[in-house]
Design a protein around this nucleic acid. Structure first.
Length: 369
DNA sequence: AATGGGTCCAACCGCCACATG
DNA sequence: TCATGTGGCGGTTGGACCCAT
């Protein structure tokens, strides 16, 4: 009980993870998967406790992580789920593919709480704050069906798999007192999504070397079934880690150019893909109009590279199956690139332009839902 | 330019549940 | 049944960053 044995061992590093540590952990997990977290640090050559490694993987290194700002839809969903689940961040996170419990928790504490308070809503009870509000609410409920301020204007349908495997659909009427005990139970009893299930590793890989087709990754992504937006939605795991930032309207342009590890991870994936595609032109990476990026190639012995200080590797060329559509708007500059090159050299790609064009109204994945 | 306060978030801590011997 | 190890979760915190003064 209490403190994990791994944590009391001497000489274990704490604090922020260095790129080198990230690299070691990422390389290890992508090659061998996770059998036992407590043995991971030793096998990966890290001076960390297993718990720390697990957390780092789940919250930061997982390839399916969606980074960047929360969309309005996600925000609404979190508020709605919080009303039902309370501070059960893991269960809330299970309804938001690519988001971690930690991320949602932080977002709640730093942003949503204040937002609700500003609106006069108690973030704990999701009820109006002041007595005056309560009285006013009573008056309203006496004359009209119960409707909390939160439910007003909220129109996010919630879907989640029930324990029987079917899918319940909850619309805003659910907030109007329409939630049955049974429905609530399903929410409360629903197991939190295991982050590792996002990434099924062949356990034999330890012997044979990691050689997992990305398409296999996709088909084994259980979480996609749990996506509130449906299993075939481009929202989720068909997306590249960092490119999915484009799913959100207000993503920062620094997403591609800052020094954080996540963007480095994405460049890693891209680098690997490019190296692969450079030797096999049949491997195509497709940026979908909906914001997804489908890797049809293979990740073989995925390496980890911080090369270029998070700039795209000079070798990095992306074979783009440029399927233009009305929804997929590109800048004239990019259009020129597409017209003149079958493959785009991302080293000369203006990152801010890419980011900007991938974001906002032009590229809101929710438009496709 | 220096500094102090506020904000954000990655990571840690402590607890619980469960598996195993 | 008990002790121990481990995974998982929610709460908390330290420090980096931002901004106003």
């Amino acid at each position: 009980m209490g403190r994990h044995s791994c944590c009391v061992k001497q000489k274990l590093r704490k604090g922020l993870w260095s790129p080198e540590e990230d690299e070691k952990l990422f390389n290890y997990i992508t090659r061998f998967g996770v059998g036992c977290w407590s043995s991971v640090p030793k096998l990966a050559g890290l001076q960390r406790c297993g718990k720390s490694c697990r957390l780092r993987w789940i919250n930061y290194l997982r390839p399916d992580l969606k980074r960047g700002m929360f969309s309005q839809q996600e925000e609404d969903l979190i508020i709605s789920l919080h009303e039902v689940l309370g501070n059960r961040w893991a269960q809330i996170a299970a309804q938001l593919p690519g988001r971690t419990d930690n991320e949602i928790k932080n977002f709640w504490n730093s942003c949503l709480k204040k937002k609700l308070l500003k609106q006069g809503i108690d973030p704990n009870t999701h009820k109006p704050l002041t007595e005056a509000h309560v009285k006013e609410e009573k008056k309203i409920t006496e004359t009209t069906p119960m409707q909390t301020p939160l439910s007003q204007g909220l129109s996010v349908p919630l879907t989640f798999p029930s324990s029987q495997g079917s899918t319940l659909l909850i619309d805003s009427s659910y907030y109007d007192g329409g939630l049955t005990e049974a429905s609530r139970e399903i929410f409360l009893n629903k197991p939190a999504l295991d982050p590792l299930s996002y990434y099924d590793f062949p356990m034999g890989a330890a012997q044979s070397g990691f050689n997992l087709p990305m398409s296999q990754c996709q088909t084994s992504l259980k979480a996609s079934d749990q996506s509130p937006f449906g299993p075939n939605s481009s929202y989720g795991f068909l997306t590249m880690p960092s490119l999915t930032n484009s799913d959100h309207g207000n993503v920062s342009v620094t997403e591609f150019s800052d020094n954080n590890s996540a963007s480095k991870i994405s460049s890693l994936f891209m680098n690997e893909q490019v190296k692969e595609s450079s030797s096999n032109s049949s491997n195509m990476s497709t940026i979908y109009p909906g914001g997804g990026c489908h890797i049809s190639g293979m990740i073989e012995n995925a390496g980890f590279s911080w090369e270029g200080d998070n700039k795209f590797d000079p070798l990095f060329q992306f074979q783009v199956n440029a399927t233009k559509s009305e929804d997929f708007k590109i800048s004239p500059w990019e259009e020129g690139q597409l017209q003149t090159h079958n493959s785009i050299d991302f080293t000369s790609f203006p990152l801010t332009s890419l980011s900007e064009d991938l974001t906002g109204e032009n590229f809101d994945v929710f438009q496709h839902i």
